[in-house]
Computed example of a mutant assay.
Amino acid sequence: MQQHLVISLISDDKPGIVEKLSAAVAENSGNWEDSRMAHFAGKFAGILRVSVPSDHSQGLRDALGALAGAGYKLQIEEAQAVAAGPQQTLQLKLVGNDRPGIVRELSRALAARAINMEQLDTGYSSTPWSGEPLFTATCTVAVAGDMDLDGLRDELDEIADELGVEIDCEAAAPAA
């Protein structure tokens, strides 16, 4: 029987982090299934999902524990199966002058409709023409297949107007 684990990691950024993590998974008959990893301000952060035969799970946990002793901050959780009905996946794209509260207002609108963010990527840069701070966000959400999206789009339009940003909401492209 397979066990599925979600592992989060943060450490000082240096070469070999992913190699050590992947070696621990492979040496314990695990399969690296899905991950998101990035460098942030001198730190390396990631989250991954692995499957491992149940009889190798403790060996993997021990190997990851050894990494924790070498300065890696790890958290390991058993993945839970979630039953879901038909869903539609949406992608929200936001761009506008940076200011406090943008993520809060967007997440508030989604939470009020019991919509969970599946992925959120944000960025900060300067507009090329004026040098003003520019905030961008791309958010992937899944909603019930029969959900009427007009109310959500109206609320996102109101938030966009209040914050002086643009928010586009469209069906996400199917996974390749």
Rank of each mutant, 00 (worst) to 15 (best):
P15F: 03
P15D: 02
V18C: 03
E19W: 00
E19I: 01
S22Y: 03
A23C: 00
A23E: 13
V25M: 12
A26H: 08
A26Q: 07
S29V: 11
G30N: 09
N31S: 15
E33Q: 11
D34T: 10
S35M: 14
M37K: 13
F40C: 13
G42L: 13
F44I: 07
F44L: 06
A45R: 05
A45I: 11
I47H: 05
L48G: 09
S54D: 13
D55P: 01
H56M: 07
H56Y: 06
H56P: 00
H56T: 06
Q58I: 03
R61P: 01
R61D: 03
D62I: 10
D62M: 03
A63N: 10
A63Q: 10
L67F: 12
K73V: 09
Q75L: 12
Q75V: 02
E77I: 04
A79W: 05
Q80F: 08
Q80G: 06
A81N: 01
V82C: 12
V82R: 14
A83N: 08
Q87Y: 06
Q87R: 15
Q88E: 11
Q88F: 01
T89N: 03
Q91T: 13
L92R: 11
K93H: 11
K93F: 02
K93A: 13
L94T: 14
L94Y: 08
L94C: 12
V95M: 15
V95R: 09
G96K: 10
N97I: 10
N97P: 00
D98M: 03
D98R: 09
R99H: 08
R99Q: 15
P100G: 03
G101P: 08
R104P: 00
E105H: 03
L106T: 06
L106F: 02
S107V: 06
S107P: 06
S107W: 09
A109D: 01
L110N: 05
L110S: 02
A112T: 01
A114Y: 07
A114P: 00
N116P: 07
M117P: 13
E118A: 12
Q119N: 15
Q119S: 15
D121F: 14
T122H: 07
G123F: 01
Y124H: 15
S125D: 10
S126M: 08
P128R: 11
P133N: 04
A137C: 07
A137E: 00
V141K: 02
V143A: 10
V143I: 14
A144K: 14
G145T: 09
D146E: 15
M147E: 10
L149R: 07
L149S: 02
L149K: 03
D150H: 05
D154R: 08
D154L: 11
D154F: 05
E155T: 14
L156H: 05
I159P: 02
